[in-house]
Design a protein around this nucleic acid. Structure first.
Lengths: 194, 194
DNA sequence: CGTATCATGTAACTAGTTACATGATTCA
DNA sequence: TGAATCATGTAACTAGTTACATGATACG
């Protein structure tokens, strides 16, 4: 029984492997370049995650030897892995919805159906809208009395929320006009140097 | 020896208590309202954190009884607590700098010196600028070849980064013109209903 | 010759979540 | 009567970090 203890980070790694076979080192490099977007992580979490995915039969390994460099373990997703990934993607996202969680899923868009992708963006839109309204309400309720830092943080949140809403609206419109270039262009720019 | 094992979350709670004495339940409520900004947390982390702060002498408790409701434990910061908080605030922030970590500190602005606050905003500015440049570089390098999701995530990050930069510039200018209304207006809007 | 990059991994620890346990009061 | 809100807490677990260990090659 494929333990359903896989949580978001493991699943995200699985998602990356669905786009391209990679080694733990590749994943680290890739994640580091997107640090700001989805957050980096240490080898101490990547390797164990990979071992767990392997133990559950969601990925396979190929050891590739080189003359000049240490051997590399290239992980590839299996059919079972794609299945689990698809199930994960189809599950609704937690209502709080951090930007990080949203972006992690968004990056795996090729595993969404067209409608699924649009639904994901719409869901984000409504979440951000709620948060925006909440922040404005807090801001209105407190006005002068609030601590300077709280006021600044509130303004900051409002500015970011508005930017997100604007982007989401633009993008949703763009996507609804074109039939979506959904032919999955594999490759994430990190050449695996096999 | 006041163990220096206190990490950001504990310190943030300490910071909240520096603005106003609160109970664990108050903190939960307050954090929940700012879920989107700094993230919520469970009682399972709040109460133990409070106990740890108490054990280290950074806060004190007062039990307040009510006729109609359960008794509440109101925590207040001590002088030692303010000291630790000040030291934390004066420490430089990690270079990666998530928005969450930034906002947590920003919310505690009343514990900064004027210059400290401006320095904090400037540091964020330069971090976001670097990230923005990095994302643009990735976007340029990959152009067509990248997966749809990756492209969307990149765009999203760029939009948010630009919004942050704009806000930071506006705010830094605003702050440099006025001598700052730095008389600390205590109170965070959550009436403690003592 | 020392440092950086490539490459994999483990062990000890920290932090946090979820689920449980308790119990009073208010509202439908 | 049953659910919701107020209010505190603990125990078991999960996830993640930091620090360590290993070892090759390349570059200055």
């Amino acid at each position: 029984m494929a333990s359903r203890t896989l949580r978001s980070f493991r699943q995200f790694i699985l998602g990356l492997l669905s786009q391209q076979p990679m080694s733990g080192y590749d994943i680290k490099r890739f994640l580091k370049s997107l640090d700001w977007l989805v957050g980096s992580s240490s080898f101490g979490s990547i390797y164990p995650a990979l071992h767990a995915l392997l133990a559950n039969g969601l990925v396979t390994v190929d050891v590739v030897y080189h003359q000049d460099r240490p051997p590399r373990k290239i992980y590839s997703i299996t059919e079972a892995g794609r299945q689990v990934l698809k199930e994960w993607i189809n599950q609704p996202v937690a209502s709080s919805g951090s930007m990080r969680a949203f972006l992690m899923r968004l990056m795996l868009a090729s595993n969404f159906s067209q409608d699924g992708l649009i639904a994901h963006l719409k869901q984000r839109r409504s979440q951000v809208e709620v948060q925006h309204a909440t922040l404005e309400q807090i801001a209105r309720a407190q006005d002068e009395m609030t601590d300077l830092g709280q006021r600044l943080a509130l303004e900051y949140g409002l500015a970011v929320a508005m930017a997100e809403l604007a982007w989401l609206d633009r993008t949703l419109e763009r996507l609804s006009k074109q039939p979506l270039p959904m032919e999955v262009a594999h490759g994430n720019g990190i050449t695996p140097t096999v």
